[in-house]
Simulated assay, not measured.
Amino acid sequence: MWLAIGLLSLSLGILGVFLPLLPTTPFVLLSAFCFSKSSSRLHLWLLNHKLFGHLISDWEKHGVIRTKVKIIATCSMLLLVSYPLVFMPFANWLKAIVIISIVSVLAFIWSRPSSPKKI
């Protein structure tokens, strides 16, 4: 079960790199958690991954999402949804769902610490 959830979560995280409504970081973090319960090989692979490794180790060790990652996530989400929201003829309730989703994800991201606590 953990392995299946981890693979699904990682798939959604990878899709989130390209789709603005799917947040990459929370899905990759969830997949790392699931892999830590099911497959040490996949968990180590994620920890050593060029793109995702630092995100996971920052989160696992300190519960941190670095400022640079927050800025990239914020800019990419806002840039990718701004044009369709302004210029595409979607129903207002769909636009509201998109706005609420983006604001919720950004609130989560920006509520996390940006650097490890100094002891």
Rank of each mutant, 00 (worst) to 15 (best):
residue 2 W to Y: 15
residue 3 L to Q: 08
residue 3 L to S: 05
residue 4 A to S: 15
residue 4 A to C: 14
residue 4 A to Y: 14
residue 4 A to R: 13
residue 4 A to M: 15
residue 5 I to V: 14
residue 5 I to W: 08
residue 7 L to V: 15
residue 8 L to P: 02
residue 9 S to G: 04
residue 9 S to I: 05
residue 9 S to H: 02
residue 12 L to N: 09
residue 13 G to K: 00
residue 13 G to I: 02
residue 13 G to N: 00
residue 14 I to Q: 08
residue 15 L to W: 13
residue 15 L to K: 14
residue 15 L to Y: 14
residue 16 G to R: 00
residue 16 G to H: 03
residue 17 V to C: 11
residue 18 F to Q: 06
residue 20 P to D: 05
residue 20 P to F: 06
residue 20 P to G: 02
residue 21 L to A: 03
residue 21 L to V: 01
residue 21 L to W: 04
residue 24 T to L: 01
residue 26 P to L: 04
residue 26 P to M: 01
residue 27 F to K: 04
residue 27 F to V: 04
residue 29 L to A: 01
residue 29 L to T: 00
residue 31 S to P: 00
residue 31 S to K: 00
residue 32 A to I: 01
residue 34 C to Y: 01
residue 34 C to I: 05
residue 34 C to H: 01
residue 35 F to M: 01
residue 36 S to I: 03
residue 39 S to H: 04
residue 40 S to Q: 15
residue 40 S to N: 14
residue 40 S to V: 13
residue 41 R to Q: 14
residue 41 R to N: 14
residue 42 L to N: 07
residue 44 L to K: 13
residue 45 W to L: 10
residue 45 W to H: 10
residue 46 L to H: 01
residue 46 L to F: 03
residue 47 L to K: 09
residue 47 L to S: 03
residue 47 L to F: 09
residue 47 L to N: 08
residue 47 L to W: 05
residue 48 N to Y: 10
residue 48 N to V: 05
residue 48 N to C: 07
residue 49 H to N: 05
residue 50 K to T: 09
residue 52 F to V: 00
residue 53 G to C: 01
residue 54 H to A: 10
residue 54 H to Q: 13
residue 54 H to S: 12
residue 57 S to V: 08
residue 57 S to K: 12
residue 58 D to H: 06
residue 59 W to F: 01
residue 61 K to W: 12
residue 61 K to C: 06
residue 62 H to R: 07
residue 62 H to G: 03
residue 63 G to S: 03
residue 63 G to A: 03
residue 63 G to M: 02
residue 64 V to W: 02
residue 65 I to D: 00
residue 66 R to E: 11
residue 67 T to A: 13
residue 67 T to V: 15
residue 68 K to G: 14
residue 71 I to K: 06
residue 71 I to R: 05
residue 71 I to W: 08
residue 72 I to M: 12
residue 73 A to D: 06
residue 73 A to Y: 05
residue 73 A to M: 07
residue 74 T to G: 05
residue 75 C to T: 14
residue 75 C to F: 12
residue 76 S to W: 12
residue 77 M to I: 06
residue 77 M to T: 03
residue 77 M to E: 02
residue 78 L to T: 07
residue 78 L to M: 03
residue 78 L to Y: 06
residue 79 L to I: 06
residue 81 V to W: 05
residue 81 V to I: 07
residue 82 S to K: 07
residue 83 Y to F: 13
residue 83 Y to K: 11
residue 85 L to R: 02
residue 86 V to K: 13
residue 87 F to S: 09
residue 88 M to V: 13
residue 90 F to P: 00
residue 92 N to G: 12
residue 93 W to H: 09
residue 93 W to M: 07
residue 93 W to F: 09
residue 95 K to Q: 05
residue 96 A to R: 11
residue 96 A to T: 12
residue 97 I to V: 11
residue 97 I to S: 09
residue 98 V to F: 09
residue 99 I to S: 11
residue 99 I to W: 10
residue 99 I to R: 10
residue 100 I to W: 10
residue 101 S to T: 13
residue 103 V to T: 13
residue 104 S to T: 12
residue 104 S to I: 11
residue 105 V to D: 02
residue 106 L to G: 03
residue 107 A to Y: 15
residue 107 A to I: 12
residue 107 A to C: 14
residue 108 F to G: 08
residue 108 F to C: 07
residue 109 I to A: 01
residue 109 I to Y: 04
residue 110 W to A: 02
residue 110 W to Q: 02
residue 111 S to H: 08
residue 111 S to G: 04
residue 112 R to G: 05
residue 113 P to H: 04
residue 113 P to E: 04
residue 115 S to K: 14
residue 116 P to K: 06
residue 117 K to I: 13
residue 119 I to C: 15
